[in-house]
Write a protein that binds this DNA or RNA. Structure first.
Lengths: 215, 215, 215, 215
DNA sequence: CAATAAGCGAGACGGTACGTCGTGTCTTCTT
DNA sequence: AAGAAGACACGACGTACCGTCTCGCTTATTG
């Protein structure tokens, strides 16, 4: 299942055109096999120790078939990661009515889930592919950085609707403040103690200032 | 000037040994020329479109001279970036006594400075080199991620000493919440509006919850 | 017009069967278009710089249509060359009754005609295709090497019938001695002076003539 | 031993320059290994079924090392063939004083030697490489077509000096008339009966001899 | 002051991967 | 059933880098 839930096929590929197509149609099976092989290899190797040739071999596919549909390795890896071929369990976001408690539980889950080897590998691959593919693939990684679209943003949105947030609170900023430090540490492999995550949740939910500045 | 101020030479290189050296000593001039050339190339090319060969040519240096002192391209780039061969102006952190105002001013400065082409290039190079050099260079990028060592942490520390922060506030978490989302966006090239930065500062300084949870 | 005069279709293709054919019959138009396109391309490119794909594109024909009727590029090229799609003017062989004079005139004609760019291209293509298609196409190029079947052999045969040749003279050997050195030089692109050709004719005719021509 | 006897290194490579050379010198061992590997492969495969990659692998050499010194496969093969890495025994040319007898013996030897599998392979490789490498390598194959430089021309020259040839006889033409038909048949794989070779010798010798041999 | 040692620029080396091209087969819709 | 279109598996091409190695040369310390 994808981190992003939705099918992201359209992000990389133009949707099937309405024009009557001539010639042999694209083999959807090959498409799948490539992404699966990529995901499999990413699980056991780093981004730049896998080659297009190995992906092709692993997928039982011709190299040209890869280059026919993707411009380079970065794009293949991005599609594999973004469309969820790299398996990943989402940390569930509860809604007990208590925002601080829900975020705390979620954060602890993320600290566990996010530092699983597979997630680290995936996050690094995403980052490496995004950086290498620049500037062509920049838009992709930008779009997909939108973790806010997930459960976290949703939970914050609900809190706002229930007037649990102070007026003017920016939920996108809050989501960023929660998730980006975590993601960063996952990518660079810096371990995070549970207390650190908790402090982050505390900070975002209640701020750090002794007296709230008047705005 | 380096982002980190201090000389980081020791991080990558064993310090000059006390033992009396035989043979021709290392040419400090070559050392400099390599780092300068690397910085120059990083300004106009991405991390993986520059090669050791190009660095050597640009520096007017033999390739072996590079490999004698660094293990691979990632290390050269890391040293060039970390020791400040990539020029960079630090955003000054004021201390007017008003934390929220000081952080706001600093954030707006960072939004300007951080999205300068050179800073983006440097940040991406750092990231790419760190990722590629794994696991050998992991420690480096982890250490250098410690932006807390800079002005931001210092300002927060002073605020804490003056009891401007609520009890139990975690300044490291706050610093992370402020800087990581910014850094992330710089690396992936996602533009940030001034309002977004402001919201981040607001969130961290005052939190988002309507009522502070009792802790 | 073909060097060999006759239609060589049968050499490569099984003759049209008598059996009642089911389905759409072979498009003779496509057949022609392929050979024409091949000849056209051979005029401007060398054998191995043209591809089946280019032939198909140039002919406006599907690639499979080519592979349905020929086994490989060598066969297509051989048929195109051998059936005379590569335009070629035969050097006429006179019969004035004077063998030495007739052969001399013919040789000078060949030296002119054979070193025309088109002939060179054709000869090289024939050679290259024959070599590449080995061993399948070996028989073809062997058969077609039989230049003896042409005007030269015919003229020699007539001379023999008129007792102009010394007893025991081998006209096939004489024909080979005349034409192979020429052909070889055409293929490898080694220029031949008129005097060289004349010397060849002199050598062979004094070797086979009943009475040595007075020179 | 080479068909041409002499070392042909200079034909393909610029001779070692007098200029003081910098950097690591060319590995003569690698040079040899490439040519040996090429010759070995040519013995068991046809010209275009061997690849540069296989040559490199067989030689235990990097592919770039081949491309550093030769422009393409054709040049490697040409050098391997022309410098005699493809083993070849020359047919000895006797000088009994009787030209017709000497040429007959030599021709019968050639018919045996030339149709040995190795010689056929070598001749075809030479031809294929020469054709493919056009026009760059054209000069090479032209030069090397100069079989006249060998024993045959030498024998004819001696005969001329002894006035065994008729006045005005062109020994180059005679040599061509003898060897090119043979070479052509070897290349295209057309078997030659001993009688055919004998007829060729008869034709040429009676053409050039001062006194016709009695037959 | 020679001998020894190690660094230097240069550039060839054995390799790995790249991205392109060509071959001959297969699969779609069209004629 | 054949044709045009074009995707497919395969594999060679020629290039670019990697990290190592060997040259002749230079610059130190040591004997």
């Amino acid at each position: 299942m994808s981190l992003w839930g939705a099918d992201r096929y359209h992000v990389l590929m133009t949707p099937p055109e309405a024009t009557k197509q001539r010639g042999r149609p694209r083999s959807e099976q090959s498409h799948q096999k490539v992404l699966e092989a990529t995901a499999r290899l990413l699980g056991s190797s780093s981004y730049d120790s896998i080659s297009v040739e190995r992906i092709a071999a692993e997928a039982g596919v011709g190299k040209q078939t890869i280059y026919r549909w993707w411009r380079n390795k970065a794009e293949v890896v991005l599609e594999a990661v973004l469309t969820g071929y790299v398996e990943m369990e989402l940390v569930p976001m509860d809604d007990t009515g208590d925002l601080h408690q829900d975020l705390s539980a979620w954060m602890q889950g993320m600290l566990t889930e996010g530092f699983r080897e597979e997630f680290i590998a995936m996050a690094r691959s995403l980052m490496a592919a995004g950086l290498e593919g620049l500037p062509e693939t920049a838009e992709l990684i930008r779009q997909e950085h939108a973790w806010e679209s997930g459960a976290l943003m949703e939970r914050l949105r609900r809190a706002a609707e229930r007037d649990e947030l102070r007026p003017g609170a920016d939920i996108a900023a809050a989501a960023s403040a929660l998730i980006d430090p975590l993601l960063f540490r996952i990518v660079i492999g810096k371990p995070c103690a549970p207390a650190w995550g908790q402090a982050l949740v505390d900070t975002v939910t209640s701020g750090i200032a002794a007296d709230r500045p008047a705005r």
